[in-house]
């Protein structure tokens, strides 16, 4: 008797389960939790919200947005960023239109033009005049196929660059200090820029731990302060520099150290 007729509670359970399976919620939630564990973001709720937001819009969106969303999951300093890079590369190199009969549309692989668009999307928060020099160095040509090594390098550099621009902005606001407005002493800016240049120069290619320490030594607060002080006593005229020019010069210094693709 008991076998034939299930208890009402179990029946209810089965009903719910059927519903979840039918609407594919189970697998999606599991997927979301997997991603959450994998990336371990600081704010899990925000991460989940973004994740589901992306899923609901992904039907309409194109390849580039999908890839961008995958990359956006974690910060580039996290370990899982490397995994995301691989997933993103696979997604980006899918054939454009698998159903098309034309052979050129069917070939998988990441072309330079798609890649260029992707980089532009990543850098969309940075004003265009600032990232032009960067793209010159790491951009790919439309006809080129992008291998994974290059893909990883360029994407990482782009994310690093976004962080760099943010840092430059905050340095500038520190330099401005209590002064109102968006200008500050030109000499101070130049000292900061030149000391960054010195530090990057002393960062050698071989990446020995000593060279990192040496470079960091150049940037210590006392050194900066003493060069600022010696400058202050020698000059009296005051020319100013605005944020745009400061950013441009900093970026020039930074991008000149970025390896050009060959």
């Amino acid at each position: 008797m008991g076998d034939r007729k299930k208890s009402p509670i179990e029946e209810r359970k089965q009903q719910y389960k059927d519903y979840l399976d039918k609407t594919d919620v189970t697998s999606q939630v599991r997927e979301a939790l997997l991603k959450l564990i994998e990336n371990q973001p600081k704010d899990p709720m925000l991460f989940l919200a973004n994740y589901f937001d992306n899923i609901s819009t992904s039907d309409k969106s194109d390849k580039i947005t999908t890839v961008h969303q995958i990359l956006q999951l974690t910060h580039h300093s996290q370990q899982s960023f490397q995994t995301n890079l691989i997933v993103a590369y696979d997604a980006a190199s899918l054939a454009k239109n698998p159903n098309s009969k034309k052979a050129s549309m069917n070939r998988p692989g990441l072309t330079g033009s798609v890649f260029e668009e992707l980089l532009a999307t990543i850098l969309s928060n940075v004003p265009k005049n600032l990232h032009a020099t960067l793209l010159e160095r790491i951009g790919c040509r439309a006809s080129e196929m992008v291998p994974f090594g290059v893909f990883r390098y360029c994407i990482t550099v782009c994310y690093v660059f976004v962080d760099f621009v943010k840092l430059c902005g905050s340095i500038f606001s520190v330099l401005c200090g209590k002064q109102s407005g968006k200008v500050t002493d030109k000499d101070i800016c130049e000292i900061v820029i030149s000391s960054l240049k010195d530090a990057l120069d002393s960062l050698q290619d071989d990446n020995s731990p000593c060279s990192i320490l040496e470079a960091a030594y150049v940037l210590r607060p006392d050194k900066l302060a003493s060069s600022l002080l010696s400058n202050k006593s020698s000059k009296t005229d005051k020319s100013t520099m605005n944020e745009d020019d400061f950013m441009k010069e900093m970026i020039d210094v930074f991008t000149s150290k970025i390896k050009v693709l060959k």
Binding site: H76, R152, Y153, T156, V157, V160, D163, F164, L167, C168, L196, A199, L200, L203, D205, N207, I212, A215, A216, L219, F254, K257, I258, K259
Partner: peptide, 11 residues
Amino acid sequence: ILQLAEKTVLS
């Protein structure tokens, strides 16, 4: 910034 530069070299 130095760390970031380091990262670009490493990658």
